[in-house]
Design a protein around this nucleic acid. Structure first.
Lengths: 222, 222
DNA sequence: TATTTTTTGATAGTATTACTATTATATTTG
DNA sequence: CAAATATAATAGTAATACTATCAAAAAATA
């Protein structure tokens, strides 16, 4: 893919000070992605992050209210990026089948390097979204946070692909369920294939996840 | 369902002292289910649990090493109970279709009261499994804990239903992926329907989740 | 260039968590 | 009734997830 220097804009409700507005802010985001991946979300702390980037804990709190909000921010960044990929890949496609299968491909494939967004490593970000993102919304605050719009990008991605499903088969009753099942399922399968492989049918070397979910969708809506 | 007083046996690696061996132990389990549901796993602590059951924090630690291990225990109890339901519902069924659709029904339906297990409320337990169980295995310790067998019951449930899938269509390549997608998907859809309804197509009153996943499976393996 | 404003760093402090350790007191069992 | 076991009470620890304050550095502006 080309190196378009595109900018992903994140709603200012998700941060206290925009991390894109300074070098320190970008360092906080990029290093936090690496550290959450290395340590897991539970063991990751702002203190450790500060030490690792040669900055102070209190400075990080000036960008993000809490590590929870940082995870919400990363989640939003990730889905904005997926949405961009999705729109980019499906615009100008003529056939409805191609649009849908291209969308499923984007949602279920293994993420590879994208140099359009310099300070964020999408491969690692994808790994932490798979492993940790559910901790952002499996909390007692989900309803109030949803009202504040924290998850609207994710919902928009589901809506876009649901529209492709409905375009193919307008009488199919469950497009949103199908699409959210595919997205969440593909993530789970990648996690399982690494840690609980008997819950999958992934063979070494071959990436069957895209194929599995593509077949599933096209058969479901037939 | 009949009131068979059946006993679910949990591997002794999951507790320090068997909670079924005393009144206090049973109280710990039953009240912890309620409290995790009320407070969420993050805000639930052994101290609060102790206060609530009129017992001491240190006494609870004598049964469970940590609140993480308690969650693993509850997870295991839940899947052992599902496995029992599954075997009970499918034994003696003659047709392969009936076996599979009965299994999908067990895995995706809304749980209702079961008085066979006196001190555990399965309705609430189901709710916390949906909302909190992923926190048990989305940790950095997953691989070592999997080796210790903490997730073997869940894997056995997936295996059993995968066998039904393979019985129906021996050439279907991805039975485990299909079954784990259905189980995880149905849980997610129940969570979404309550908190992020735009990710689903659930209408008030009607339970479409069972129908959706049943259709999905039968179309997938055709 | 000087001054003001903004940003960052350093330090200290708090309440809570997730435990461990010790000892005393009940309760059960032989 | 004695011995063993289970539970309760209390204290203590290191770490977490912050907040508050103030000084120093850097950037913006006059």
């Amino acid at each position: 893919m080309e190196n378009l220097q595109i900018h992903i804009v994140i709603s200012d409700e998700l941060y206290t000070k925009n991390p894109e507005s300074s070098e320190l802010g970008k360092k906080i985001v990029s290093r936090s992605i690496e550290m959450i991946d290395e340590l897991g979300f539970e063991c990751f702390t702002f203190k450790k992050l500060g030490q690792s980037i040669g900055s102070n804990e209190s400075s990080i709190y000036r960008y993000f209210e809490s590590k929870h909000m940082l995870l919400v921010y990363l989640n939003c960044w990730y889905w904005s990026w997926v949405e961009y990929k999705l729109v980019f890949a499906t615009t100008n496609l003529q056939s409805k089948e191609d649009k849908l299968s291209s969308a499923i491909n984007i949602l279920t494939r293994k993420v590879d390097v994208d140099n359009s967004f310099s300070y964020i490593n999408e491969v690692i970000l994808n790994r932490i979204i798979i492993a940790e993102s559910s901790k952002a919304y499996h909390t007692k605050e989900i309803d109030s946070e949803n009202e504040k719009g924290y998850y609207k990008v994710y919902k928009r991605v589901v809506q876009r692909v649901s529209n492709f499903v409905s375009d193919m088969n307008p009488s199919f009753e469950f497009p949103h369920m199908l699409v959210s099942t595919v997205i969440e399922g593909a993530h789970k399968q990648r996690y399982f294939s690494e840690h609980l492989p008997s819950l999958t049918d992934v063979k070494e070397g071959v990436d069957v996840i895209v194929k599995f979910y593509t077949d599933l969708v096209f058969k479901a809506i037939k």
